[in-house]
Every structure is written in C-alpha cells, then in structure tokens.
C-alpha cells in the first residue's frame, strides 16, 4: 500500500526538492506550508510519517508541533523525521549520523539539505521501526 506522508515546511522551493524525491520513490506526499495548516492536517487525516521543519514563521514554530504530537496518544505513534536548517551542534559535528530528538517514540533529525538516498532510507526505516513497535504492542 502506498505510504502517505505529510511535510510541514514554509519554504516552497525546499519542499519541491524533497517532494520530488519522495514522489519518485512512490510515496504520496501532502504538504502544509505553515504550522497551523500542518496541525489541522494531522488532526483530521492519517499519515504514515511526518516530515517536519523546525525553523518556521517567527522562530522555532516546528517545536510547537512536535510538543503537540508528544501529548497526543494517537499521534505519538507516528514516526517523525525532523528536517531542519537549524545548526544543531551535534548535527554539525557528526553529519549523517542518526540523531534522535526523542520528541515522539520514533523520530530522527537530519540537516538541510538531504541527500536523496539518505532521505529515502531514513523515511523507510522510520516507518518500518514504527510499524514494528506498534505490532509488538498488540
């Protein structure tokens, strides 16, 4: 079954660069260009993974989304790939290595820009990890 992803990012050019790769890899990608729209989509529809930008609007508005997810029993199970331009000290030091912000059960952080191969790998592995976890609970 086609996996459905939501991307929340306010930079249309960057979104285009990510979406093209994921479309090509057979994912169905929906985009929200601001946190409000994104939150609404999350609450009304179901996704297999969220791609989340942190620095949006007037500051780190993506954090707000991540916090809301953490509090929501159902949304908490959805894997999140945080894609940020924000220079995370660790991301800067060890590029490409997995960093888990642990906002939700299954998440990882990568820095913009993201290599196509790595992007697809991360998306697939996060979805798989989340599914395995969920299956284990039942």
């Amino acid at each position: 079954m086609t996996k459905k992803l939501l991307m929340i990012d306010d930079d249309p050019d960057f979104v285009a660069g990510i979406k093209a790769i994921l479309d090509n890899a057979g994912f169905e990608v929906e985009v929200a260009y601001n946190p409000k729209e994104g939150l609404h989509a999350l609450q009304t529809k179901q996704y297999d993974l969220l791609l989340l930008d942190i620095m949006m609007g007037r500051g780190a508005e993506g954090i707000m989304i991540a916090r809301k997810l953490r509090k929501d029993v159902k949304l908490r199970e959805m894997p999140v790939l945080i894609i940020t331009g924000m220079r995370e000290q660790i991301a800067f030091l060890f590029p490409g290595e997995p960093i888990h912000p642990r906002f939700v059960e299954v998440d990882e952080l990568v820095e913009k820009p993201v290599e196509p191969k790595m992007l697809i790998e991360k998306v697939n592995s996060l979805i798989l990890t989340a599914e395995t976890k969920k299956a284990g609970k039942k």
Binding site: D11, D13, F14, G17, A20, I21, K112, P113, V114, P116
Partner: peptide, 14 residues
Amino acid sequence: LKAPLGAVQQNLFV
C-alpha cells in the same frame, strides 16, 4: 543565507 542555499542544494540533488 542558509535557507536559500539549502533549497538550491536540495533541488540540485533532485
């Protein structure tokens, strides 16, 4: 500075 460069690079990747 970083955001536009990131977008450029991302599209180059594509």
